[in-house]
C-alpha cells in the first residue's frame, strides 16, 4: 500500500520544495535554452528557482537568505 510520500511510478519526478529549489529525481531531461544537455553530477539535483544561487542552475542554499515567497 502506498504510504504518504509515495510519488507515483513515473520514470522521473520534479518536487517543488516550499521556499526552496526544485528537486529533480529520476529520468528527466535537463537541457539549457539551446537544448544542450546540462551535465548532472549526481542522481538527484536541486534546481534553483529563487535566482540567488551562485552555482546556477543548481541551488546552493542562498534562497535561505532571500525574503520568503510562498509556495
Amino acid at each position: 500500500m502506498p504510504e504518504a510520500g509515495w510519488r507515483g511510478d513515473g520514470p522521473g519526478e520534479i518536487i517543488v520544495c516550499p521556499n526552496g529549489p526544485l528537486l529533480v529525481r529520476g529520468d528527466v531531461d535537463l537541457v539549457d535554452a539551446d537544448g544542450a544537455p546540462v551535465e548532472r553530477r549526481r542522481a538527484t539535483v536541486a534546481v534553483c528557482r529563487c535566482g540567488a544561487s551562485a552555482i546556477k542552475p543548481w541551488c546552493d542554499g542562498s534562497h535561505k537568505l532571500m525574503p520568503r515567497d510562498e509556495p
Binding site: 529549489p21 528537486l23 549526481r42 538527484t44 539535483v45 536541486a46 541551488c59 546552493d60
Partner: peptide, 23 residues
C-alpha cells in the same frame, strides 16, 4: 558540499526526518 548538501538538506528534512515523523 555547496551543491550536494543543497540537495541533501531537502531530502533529509522532508523525506527522512519528515517521512519518519509521519510513520
Amino acid at each position: 558540499h555547496v551543491e550536494a548538501d543543497a540537495v541533501h538538506e531537502q531530502v533529509a528534512a522532508r523525506d527522512l526526518a519528515g517521512g519518519l515523523a509521519e510513520q
